[in-house]
Amino acid sequence: MTRSRLLPLLVALAALGACAQGPTLDQRLSTFVGRGEADLVAALGVPVRTYEAEGRRFLQFEQRRNLLVASPLAAPYGPWGPRYGYWAPPPSYVQASCDLTFALRDQRVESFSYRGEACG
């Protein structure tokens, strides 16, 4: 292949690679279905809560992340243009969480669920 034909092909492949995403949370968690409790704890750590009901055992794991939130860019502007002498407030941190719950029957993961703004 000539160099002039190879360059557009490489650019297209690079663009496709940039769009590629890793596995979703559902895909990552579904690998635990059918595995034992010890495998789950080895991978995710000790659960924060456990509960047993109707022959099932529920294990809940918590994940917390601190996210940096920048101040809005429009803040230094008023209705008549820029506000001179105004400094935008510094960025701040917020805590985002994701709670994972696994249901086990006969010591094997049967299903899972999750909730929170940091899941994904």
Rank of each mutant, 00 (worst) to 15 (best):
G120Q: 02
S113H: 10
A53Y: 15
G22V: 00
P90G: 06
T101S: 12
R56A: 09
G17A: 02
A12D: 03
P8S: 03
A38E: 10
G17C: 01
S92K: 14
T2F: 11
Y114D: 00
P76E: 02
F58G: 01
F112I: 00
C19K: 13
C19M: 12
A20P: 06
R83C: 05
E52C: 09
A43Y: 02
Y84H: 12
F58V: 02
E110Y: 08
D39G: 03
N66W: 15
F102M: 04
W87G: 08
E117R: 14
G120W: 10
L7Y: 07
A53R: 15
E54G: 13
L67E: 15
D39M: 04
F102S: 00
P8E: 05
Y77G: 06
R105L: 02
L10N: 00
Q21I: 05
S92I: 12
G116E: 02
Q63P: 05
R5D: 06
S113I: 06
G78N: 09
Y93A: 10
A12I: 03
Q107E: 12
G78K: 15
S92G: 10
L16S: 06
Y51N: 13
L29C: 07
E54C: 09
R65G: 08
G36P: 04
Y93S: 12
Q60F: 09
R83Q: 14
Q107T: 11
Q21Y: 07
P82Y: 13
Y84W: 15
A88R: 15
C19V: 07
S113L: 08
Y93Q: 12
E110F: 05
A14W: 04
E62M: 13
C119K: 09
R49V: 05
C19N: 09
P8D: 03
E117P: 12
R5W: 10
A75T: 09
E62L: 14
A118P: 01
A96M: 13
Q95D: 09
E54H: 15
A42V: 07
L7C: 02
E110R: 11
A43D: 00
P79W: 04
L100C: 02
S111Q: 05
D99K: 14
G120K: 10
L104Q: 00
R64E: 11
F61E: 00
L104S: 01
E37Y: 01
P90F: 06
P8V: 04
A96K: 15
P91Y: 09
V41K: 10
R64F: 14
V69W: 12
A96R: 12
Q63W: 14
G55K: 10
G17I: 00
Q107G: 08
P90C: 07
L7P: 01
M1C: 12
G116S: 02
R115K: 14
S113R: 15
A88V: 13
N66A: 15
F102G: 00
L73V: 13
A42F: 06
Y93F: 14
T31N: 11
L10H: 02
Q107I: 06
T31L: 14
A38D: 03
G17S: 10
L73Y: 14
A43T: 02
L9D: 03
R35G: 02
R65A: 11
L68P: 09
A18T: 04
A75Y: 15
L9G: 01
Y84A: 11
S4T: 12
V94R: 15
S4D: 10
V11P: 00
P47F: 01
A42M: 06
